[in-house]
Amino acid sequence: MNIVRDSIAGTLESNDLLVKVSPAQDEGLELHVNSEVIHQFGAQIEAVVRETLSRLGVTNALVLIEDKGALDCSIRARVQAAVLRASDATGIDWEALS
């Protein structure tokens, strides 16, 4: 999926996260995670984000995460929403989102 514009999804409320997606500055995927629970769950959050991006076929993007202790399902949902808002896709493969 091509990222063609800046988008945001989510909030900074407790148990949620803010996801910002922008077109890549250089080739490839650049991901930065900031979290209140970075020491315990930083690696897990990053893995969930990367897996979600991979299932959506996003290979070139800048993704910034401000996490406030969200569950994995919230992370997936917010990343999906931000990517769909930032992409030029018209037909959405809902199977990939499940």
């Binding site: 800046d6 945001i8 803010l18």
Partner: peptide
């Protein structure tokens, strides 16, 4: 009560709607 967090979230969303990311 984290009011500043809420009001900043709102102003960030507003800025985004106006094209300032």
């Amino acid at each position: 009560e984290n009011l500043s967090l809420k009001v900043v979230s709102e102003v960030v969303a507003l800025a985004h709607e106006r094209g300032h990311t």
